[in-house]
């Protein structure tokens, strides 16, 4: 038996004396189990990926991608997006740094689409709550949406819809990351872990709390009744709901888990989470500094279509 589950059972049913199968007992058990599992995974994943990240900087990625076009470079850019740090405050400098240095627009977009969607913190929380099969689906879809989305934007020849100053910016060399000792890498990775966990823990606790209440008290199958697979509108509505919702996605994942438990199809839940991360209003507003509104519309339309297709496909096969 899962040792964390054993601990949660022991604590809630043994020490606190709740009865298994009651609303309060189930809710509390869900809360304890999820919180411990998510935090253990979160810290491990962030530390490992941050350590690897000290070797892969955006500067190196830019050199590696170069000025070549072809769908394989879109795929590589999307994969680089998985391992590079992402915060909406660095998306614009990275965009300018890539495009200004000659990385093709479509390849840059592959990076830009996948980067916020797939990151180690989201992967850890997804794995800890919804499970690894759905997490793999999420990661692979995120990379594919970035790859094809960027490829299409490249094919549409939209370079004129980027603000002119981006092309006129002379790009410097930046800092050479090769010189770090392993202790420095370790310290940096630990610093990142602390930073991220300190930033997301309240969202996760609230998310798991809301999820736990739903898990314990909502009637079985309630989501299947209103947003089941046969309701074709559910996926687009879920994607639409995700755009203005820029609450921290880490908190929404455990809520999505409890909704799945009550019958929400996994594809619909994943589409919702992807939309929250990939299409957020603050992000789009920041991008307005470098993209003309028409290109932002293309970006939103292409990514939203990709996410909706993903939702339908996984509702069919999962």
């Amino acid at each position: 038996m899962d040792p964390i589950l054993a601990f949660a059972d022991w604590l809630v049913y043994g020490i606190f004396g709740y009865e298994a199968g009651t609303h309060a007992g189930d809710a509390l058990n869900f809360f304890v189990y999820d919180v411990i599992k998510i935090f253990v995974l979160l810290m491990t994943m962030i530390f490992l990926v941050s350590y690897i990240r000290t070797y892969i900087t955006p500067e190196k990625a830019r050199k590696f991608l170069g000025e070549r076009t072809g769908i394989q470079y879109n795929l590589m850019a999307a994969m680089v997006g998985v391992v590079t740090p992402f915060c909406s405050c660095s998306s614009v400098p990275i965009f300018i740094g890539f495009v200004g240095a000659g990385v093709p627009l479509g390849v840059t977009f592959s990076f830009l689409i996948t980067s916020p969607m797939v990151n180690e913190a989201a992967v850890a929380v997804l794995g800890g709550s919804i499970g690894w099969a759905a997490t793999a689906v999420y990661v692979i879809s995120g990379v594919l949406i970035g790859t094809f989305g960027g490829y299409i934007i490249g094919k549409l020849k939209l370079e004129h819809l980027v603000e002119d100053f981006v092309y006129k910016t002379f790009i410097g060399e930046g800092l050479d990351p090769e010189t770090m000792a392993w202790q420095e890498r370790r310290d940096w990775a630990w610093g990142e872990t602390k930073d991220i966990v300190l930033k997301v823990w309240p969202y996760i606790l609230i998310g798991v709390g809301v999820g736990a209440i739903f898990h314990g008290y909502a009637p079985e199958g309630i989501m299947a009744q209103y947003a089941g697979k046969d309701n074709l509108l559910a996926v687009p509505v879920a994607v639409g709901l995700g755009v203005p919702l820029y609450s921290n996605v880490m908190g929404l994942i455990p809520i999505a888990e409890s909704l799945i438990g009550k019958g929400l199809p996994v594809g619909t839940a994943l589409a919702f989470l992807m939309s929250v991360t990939a299409l957020s209003l603050p992000e789009l507003i920041i991008l307005k500094k470098v993209l003309k509104p028409k290109l932002i519309m293309y970006f939103v339309a292409i990514v939203a279509t990709g996410i909706i297709i993903t939702g339908y496909v996984f509702n069919l096969i999962l």
Partner: peptide, 27 residues
């Protein structure tokens, strides 16, 4: 300013530049 940041070769903020030389970025 994003353009000014990019001009100094920095893609991950925050960064520290002393006399035109990038000493630190992203931490």
């Amino acid at each position: 300013d994003f353009a000014e940041i990019a001009k100094r070769g920095v893609m991950v903020t925050p960064a520290l530049v002393v006399d035109g030389k990038v000493l630190l970025n992203g931490k």
